[in-house]
């Protein structure tokens, strides 16, 4: 049991009767004989942080890659902001993706570009036209949000792991998305940096009112960021509830995650 860090506040409560922005309904996905997702279902409401908790290799990353359309699903439907991802053509998918941010596990910063160019990349590639002044302002704003305004002309290789994670988050934020998908945001970071990232996720939620799906197996991250927790076990949504509810559960499969 970890001692509760005193200054960290509990996640902000989600407004109760909010509209549903993301629906995952009965999704199945298999790689060869390995059935990763089996009839997985999940709803995410506006302004809500949902953490998908599961073991490594349980198919958590596959889930959010299906949501953003990087992988096709075998069965079931995924509706993002009211649109069925599977039926969209290239253009419509790109338009949708401009409203959905994705924070990659390995950050996926472009090695050959400076921080500024990394941030400008999605901005320009999404056919969003801004004057150079506006672009500069947006880049500066996004970097301020993650507290790294001074790194604007550095190359990703010059940055530490935590800084890179923040830059990657800034690159996601610059489009001011409605939904952000976090793929294991705290994995590979030291505990202090990990807490800073958790803090940042919550700040983003409060400042921009975004909905988030956070993939994680880091219990501190779960505790600090989740409004609701979905437990992914053997490809199914095994349990769904607040951190406190699940922690209080006596189900051994659930308890396994919460006992340290």
């Amino acid at each position: 049991m970890l001692p509760a860090p005193a200054p960290v506040a509990a996640p902000a409560p989600a407004p109760a009767p909010a509209e549903i922005v993301l629906t995952v309904a009965n999704v199945s996905k298999a790689f060869g004989t390995n059935q990763v997702l089996r009839n997985f279902s999940l709803d995410v409401r506006r302004g809500e942080n949902v953490v998908v908790l599961g073991k490594s290799g349980a198919g958590k990353s596959v889930l959010i890659k299906c949501i953003i359309g990087l992988m096709p699903v075998d069965a079931g439907t995924i509706r993002v902001l009211g649109q069925d991802v599977a039926t969209l053509d290239h253009t419509a998918l790109d338009q949708l993706r401009a409203k959905v941010g994705f924070l990659f596990q390995s950050n996926a910063l472009y090695d050959s570009m400076t921080v500024r160019e990394n941030l400008l990349f999605p901005l320009r590639r999404h056919w969003l036209t801004h004057s150079p002044g506006e672009e500069d302002e947006l880049v500066r704003q996004a970097l301020e949000d993650v507290g790294l305004g001074h790194t604007i002309d550095m190359m990703p290789a010059e940055l530490s792991g935590g800084m890179r994670k923040r830059i990657a988050l800034a690159r996601t934020l610059i489009l001011q998305p409605d939904i952000i998908l976090y793929d294991e945001p705290t994995t590979g970071l030291d505990p202090v940096t990990a807490r800073e990232i958790d803090q940042l996720i919550r700040e983003v939620q409060q400042k921009y009112g975004t909905s988030s799906v956070i993939i994680s197996h880091d219990m501190n991250c779960v505790r600090l960021t989740a409004n609701r927790v979905a437990l992914l076990v053997e490809g199914r949504c095994y349990a769904l509830g607040t951190y406190a509810e699940l922690k209080a559960s006596t189900d051994p499969a659930i308890h396994e995650f919460f006992s340290e």
Partner: peptide, 8 residues
């Protein structure tokens, strides 16, 4: 993947 989700 990041490029793909960045509209490229």
């Amino acid at each position: 993947d990041a490029m793909e989700v960045s509209g490229t």
